[in-house]
């Protein structure tokens, strides 16, 4: 499994995961009203928090995705993305478990013909979670803006160790 630590592989993972997030953020930023309705439809958040969440979340997705692609603040952006994927998986799973048919609101706020929540979506989210978790653990690799030496990798491993002790 050594190839998983290959700098090119790490770069590829960052581009894929970061690209997903940037792409997913753009339509939501452009259509906050529609996106807030999608958030509401999940019936997970209290009504008073729905709009603030819908305003904030797409930008967090955008910045975390961009940071991951460029390879700056990699630990932070990978952690944010991993956390968001966990939240999304929980939200989608709970929607499926409650039997509500809603648009996932993942990549488009358009509604008509958009993807609905379901098992394929959960699997896709799980794959993204694993990939971002790997970047979190492994670091951005060599092809990153602020990780040009191996010391970064060592540092991030030490961080993970200290985090697991804490």
């Amino acid at each position: 499994m050594a190839f998983l630590k290959n700098d090119w592989v790490l770069l590829g993972i960052r581009l894929i995961v970061g690209g997903f997030f940037v792409y997913a953020a753009l339509d939501k930023i452009g259509n906050p009203g529609e996106f807030s309705r999608i958030v509401y439809n999940y019936r997970v958040l209290p009504g008073s928090l729905v709009n603030a969440f819908a305003i904030f979340l797409p930008w967090l997705e955008l910045f975390a995705g961009m940071a991951l692609i460029i390879g700056t603040r990699t630990v932070g952006s990978a952690a944010v993305i991993t956390g968001l994927m966990a939240v999304f998986i929980i939200a989608v799973t709970s929607a499926v478990a409650r039997g509500i048919k809603i648009d996932c609101g993942c990549f488009t706020t358009g509604g008509n013909g958009a993807r609905q929540v379901g098992l394929p979506l959960i699997i896709q989210d799980a794959v993204l979670l694993v990939l971002s978790l790997w970047i979190w653990i492994q670091g951005a690799g060599r092809w990153a803006l602020d990780a040009t030496s191996r010391t970064r990798k060592v540092a991030s491993r030490e961080e993970v160790l200290s985090a697991s002790e804490a």
Binding site: G33, S48, I55, L60
Partner: peptide, 30 residues
């Protein structure tokens, strides 16, 4: 790093919602 990203997102989110067209109420009537 996480705090940085969260603050950046909050700042841009607030700014976009206040300035650009199509902004929404902070607390919806859900």
């Amino acid at each position: 790093q996480v705090v940085f990203l969260v603050i950046a997102a909050a700042v841009f989110g607030v700014a976009r919602n206040e300035v650009a067209p199509g902004g929404i109420d902070w607390v919806g009537d859900w």
